[in-house]
Nucleic acid binder design. Structure first.
Lengths: 247, 247
DNA sequence: CGAACTTTTGACAAGCATCAACACGTGTGG
DNA sequence: CCACACGTGTTGATGCTTGTCAAAAGTTCG
């Protein structure tokens, strides 16, 4: 992949929510960047490190996690191919969490100074980048409610709904079935449950014909029912928010 | 309070983390804004509303909450006097959560168009505002871990630690004791517990001499111990992050 | 074919929720 | 000034959801 192709995929992502001019596009495509292939489990950002670059996930899946003092792991978000993983590192100093690959995939690193220069010289690009981080914030708020106030089954169904919608929006699945790269242990870390209980809840969803598939592939058998079971309302994903300059 | 005084308090907040030039300061102080006094429980932003302005909390406390389909309330953050409550509404369309007053207090509304104009014409201001929302994101991530992976007692202690540090940083308490405007029911909503269990955990913290005080005032009797009990590390608050233009 | 990981199952324990009642403080109106 | 209502905090008994531990079965991959 050439640098231009890499940056084009990041630009596509931004353009799903923001309008960009030709000048903006040209500037994005001119960013310096460096590509790497990473294996599952590989660490992209380590908690406590000072970040020098922002990372774009070109293919594969990644997750963001934090670890409690006694070793409990909490996944705080899941990143899909095409997403900018590390935008907060453009301004924040020391990483307050880690990002690791879930699957094999390609990542691209853009120096934080270049991102900053771009963001503060071209308002539309700055706005687009800021907007992405605001949507991330909205997703975090929903996750707080998910782990704080919903029971195990609902939590899991909600997570599956979110992934379904986001994969579809990213063009990575037809909305009916997809390959889920998460193990049940990782689903547990994302929902604040134990792997054993996740297993039982998945069986419960399966037995009620809401989902199908086995191992790590999910088939949505009853989308309406799954949304109901997961108390899911996609508004928090703000996928419809398309904004221009003069909004 | 004159508009200038109102905006000065917002500016102070921004300047705790970002450097601003005289031009930046003048532009902030020239923003249009309108002040209101609000009673406890009063709603500042309602979930589902289209936001037209950003809100700055001048005095008092407020909280952000979301509600599940079956009526469970989850508080996703607590806002202290001096904080900009609604910065995401500068770009995001429909509010994905509500903000309500915890105590009586004054709030100021700034039209979102004015905030946008400012942010995209003066890079240092745009950076300062973006940075605030990124720190909010970091706090959300910590809360996900708090409700997802820590037990009830630790969760509560962690919340008390966070409030202690933030109040101190805002100059609203000496770090040893403060008036906590949250009822036990609201503490429960913030930690994903029930009021009854919060009561028991508070008693546990009290009986171990970590905190004192009664009703709604908290005295920190053993700060080191409380941090330990709450698995608390203030790094995620990014209070040390002071950034200039050329960083 | 075997090793390592993941999923599944069962028995049991524990943490937290639920329900209900009571105590306490505060403000209000008679 | 007392009586009362109301919100909040406190306590106890009980039960359910979820966690823990341990082992077996299935899967993937060299």
């Amino acid at each position: 992949m050439t640098n231009r192709q890499i940056l084009a995929s990041m630009m596509r992502k931004l353009e799903t929510r923001s309008q960009l001019s030709d000048t903006d596009r040209a500037a994005i495509l001119a960013l310096p960047c460096r590509e790497e292939t990473r294996e599952p489990g590989s660490t992209i950002v380590r908690e406590g490190d000072r970040a020098e670059s922002c990372c774009v996930l070109l293919s594969g899946f990644a997750y963001r996690s934090k670890v409690t003092g006694d070793g409990g792991r909490q996944i705080v978000s899941i990143q899909l191919a095409g997403e900018i993983v590390d935008l907060h590192n453009a301004l924040l100093g020391v990483a307050d969490h880690s990002v690791q690959m879930l699957t094999r995939g390609n990542v691209a690193f853009i120096p934080r100074s270049a991102i900053q220069e771009l963001a503060f010289s071209l308002p539309a690009v700055g706005r687009a980048l800021w907007l992405e981080t605001l949507v991330d914030g909205s997703v975090y708020r929903e996750w707080i409610m998910n782990v704080g106030r919903r029971d195990a089954r609902t939590r899991l169904a909600h997570l599956l709904c979110e992934l379904t919608v986001r994969l579809k929006a990213a063009g990575l699945g037809d909305g009916n079935g997809y390959h889920l790269p998460l193990t049940q242990e990782q689903l547990a870390d994302a929902t604040g449950l134990t792997p054993v209980h996740v297993n039982r809840m998945i069986q419960s969803l399966r037995s009620q014909q809401l989902i199908g598939g086995n191992q790590r592939s999910i088939v949505i058998e009853d989308w309406e029912g799954l949304q109901l079971a997961g108390d899911f309302n996609p508004a928090y994903l703000h996928s419809e928010t398309i904004q221009g300059h003069s909004d």
